[in-house]
Simulated assay, not measured.
Amino acid sequence: MSFKSYLQFLLKSTNQHGVHSPFVYLFVTQCLYNKQLATKKELIAPTPTLSTKQQLLLLKIIRYFSIKTIFTDDPTLSKLIPPKDHCTLTPHLSTTPLPQLLFINHPTQQATTYLSYMHNDSILIINNIHQEGTNKKLWQQLISSSKVTAHISVYHQGYIFIRKEQPKQAFFIR
């Protein structure tokens, strides 16, 4: 992640006032900006794969959407989620039950594979979307897919939604 890519992100990004989608506005104001959903004190263990900010954002999303089933390719994630959140983590993609959240830190599959496990009430999180390499390539493939209706970049992570009731839109949130 370079200073140049971060500067470009800042020039494109906005806060909640630049969002014209009710779903995304609520997600930004009641989840991402909500300091009561998760605090640094709740973080169980530091991890070399996620920053403190990324951990907090992940916990906020799990709680905001009441996530119970998570697919992840990052084995350290099981150490980060407090037991009180009652989440089931799986390292294998499965259709029973379909995961509510897919958290990708080290992509090994094609974008179409991840999208095939998504439904209207799921979210796909790609970590480090501005990092050169597979994460950035996967992010570009995902946002260009016709299945994706909303994608949000918060620089350190990207969020993919497939919402039948929403037109295709891109958001860059500070």
Rank of each mutant, 00 (worst) to 15 (best):
I125A: 05
I44M: 04
P46S: 04
Y155A: 10
I44C: 06
L50V: 08
L115N: 07
H151T: 07
A45H: 11
L89W: 03
I126Y: 00
P99T: 12
I152N: 05
T95K: 08
K79P: 00
T108I: 15
P82D: 06
H130T: 10
K35M: 06
L59P: 08
I67P: 00
I162Q: 10
I125C: 03
P97G: 08
S144H: 12
L50H: 05
K79G: 01
I143E: 01
Q109Y: 12
C31W: 09
T52Y: 09
I143R: 03
I129Y: 10
Y114L: 03
D73R: 06
N128H: 14
Q100N: 14
E132V: 15
P107S: 08
I62G: 00
Y114V: 10
T134K: 12
I126T: 11
Q36A: 12
Y114N: 01
I129S: 04
E42K: 02
G158M: 08
I62M: 06
K60E: 01
H86W: 06
F65D: 04
L138F: 10
L37F: 08
L102C: 05
D74G: 00
I104Y: 00
L80D: 02
L77K: 00
Q131R: 07
A45L: 13
F23M: 09
P46W: 06
I67E: 01
R163T: 13
D121T: 15
E42R: 07
Q30V: 11
H156W: 09
T134S: 11
L142V: 11
A45G: 02
I129D: 02
V148L: 01
H130F: 13
L58Q: 02
I61Q: 02
